[in-house]
Deep mutational scan, measured.
Amino acid sequence: DDVELRDGDWRVELKDADEEILRAVEEAIKNGASEQELRELAERLIR
Rank of each mutant, 00 (worst) to 15 (best):
E19Y: 09
G32F: 02
V12K: 10
A33H: 05
A33L: 14
K30N: 08
G32A: 01
E19S: 06
L45V: 03
L41P: 00
A28H: 03
I21Q: 02
A33G: 02
L14V: 03
G32W: 01
A28Q: 02
D9F: 09
E19H: 10
R23Y: 06
V3S: 12
E19M: 09
D1P: 12
Q36G: 05
L38V: 13
E27W: 10
R44A: 12
E20Q: 10
W10P: 02
K15L: 14
L41S: 00
A42F: 15
L45W: 03
L22Q: 08
A17I: 10
L22C: 11
I29M: 14
E27M: 11
A17V: 15
L41D: 00
E37C: 10
R39A: 06
I29W: 13
R6M: 14
L38P: 00
R39W: 12
A24I: 15
R11N: 05
E40A: 12
L5T: 10
I46Y: 06
R39I: 08
K30Y: 08
A17M: 15
E13G: 12
D2T: 11
D18T: 12
S34K: 04
E26R: 12
D2N: 15
E35W: 05
D2E: 08
A24S: 07
R44F: 13
G8C: 03
E20F: 13
D18M: 03
E43D: 07
D16L: 11
R23I: 05
K30E: 05
A24Q: 15
A17S: 03
G32Y: 01
A33T: 04
L41G: 00
R11D: 04
R39D: 02
A28F: 05
R11A: 07
L14G: 02
E26P: 00
I21N: 01
G32S: 02
R11C: 14
V25N: 00
D7T: 07
L14D: 02
D2A: 12
D1S: 14
E26M: 12
E19K: 08
D18N: 02
A17C: 03
S34P: 01
L14A: 02
L14H: 02
E27H: 07
E40F: 03
N31K: 10
E4N: 10
A28P: 00
L5R: 04
D2I: 14
R11T: 04
V25M: 13
D1M: 10
G8E: 13
I29V: 12
R44M: 09
N31Q: 11
V12L: 13
R39K: 14
D16W: 11
L38T: 03
D18K: 10
D9E: 04
I46D: 04
E13C: 15
Q36R: 10
I21M: 06
E26H: 04
I29N: 04
E37T: 06
R6D: 14
A33Q: 03
G32Q: 01
D9R: 05
D18Y: 11
G8Y: 14
D1Q: 13
L22P: 00
L45Q: 01
A24T: 08
E37D: 05
E43S: 06
W10A: 02
D1R: 09
E26Q: 02
G32N: 05
L22T: 07
R39L: 08
Q36K: 10
L45I: 04
L5F: 15
E40S: 05
V25I: 14
A24V: 14
R47V: 13
S34C: 02
G32T: 00
E37P: 00
A17W: 11
L38G: 04
A24E: 11
D9V: 06
I21D: 01
D1T: 07
A42L: 14
R47K: 15
V12D: 12
D9N: 12
D9L: 06
L45E: 02
V12N: 05
G8V: 09
K15H: 07
E40K: 04
R6I: 10
K15G: 05
R47D: 14
V3T: 13
I46T: 07
R23H: 06
L14P: 02
I46F: 11
L38A: 14
I46M: 14
R23L: 11
I21L: 06
K30F: 09
V25R: 00
Q36N: 08
D2F: 11
R23A: 12
N31Y: 03
A33M: 12
E20V: 08
V3G: 15
E20Y: 14
E13H: 15
E13L: 15
R23Q: 07
A17Q: 09
S34Q: 03
D16N: 11
R11H: 02
E43C: 13
D16H: 12
A24F: 09
L41T: 00
N31I: 04
D16P: 03
S34N: 06
E13T: 12
D2L: 13
V12P: 05
L22W: 14
E40T: 05
D16A: 09
I46R: 04
K15E: 12
E37N: 03
E37G: 02
E13S: 13
R47L: 15
A17K: 05
L5I: 15
G8F: 15
D2W: 12
E40G: 03
V25L: 13
E40Q: 09
V25C: 07
E26D: 05
I46W: 03
E35L: 11
A28K: 01
E20S: 12
E13F: 15
D16F: 11
E27T: 05
E19V: 14
A33N: 02
D9G: 07
A42S: 05
Q36F: 07
E19G: 09
S34A: 03
A33D: 01
R47N: 15
A28L: 06
G32L: 01
L38N: 00
E4K: 08
I29L: 12
K15D: 05
I29R: 05
L45S: 01
E35R: 04
E20H: 09
E37F: 05
A42I: 15
N31A: 06
D7P: 06
A33V: 09
K30C: 12
D2R: 10
E35V: 09
V12C: 04
R11G: 05
E20I: 09
R6F: 14
N31H: 08
D16S: 07
A33W: 15
L14C: 04
K15F: 09
R47I: 12
A17E: 04
Q36E: 11
D16Q: 07
E13Y: 15
I46V: 07
L22D: 00
R44P: 00
V3N: 14
L38R: 02
N31C: 00
D1L: 13
L41R: 00
D16E: 06
L22N: 06
E20G: 13
D2K: 10
N31T: 07
R47C: 15
E40N: 05
A42Y: 15
L45H: 02
W10L: 04
E26W: 14
G32V: 00
L5N: 12
W10M: 03
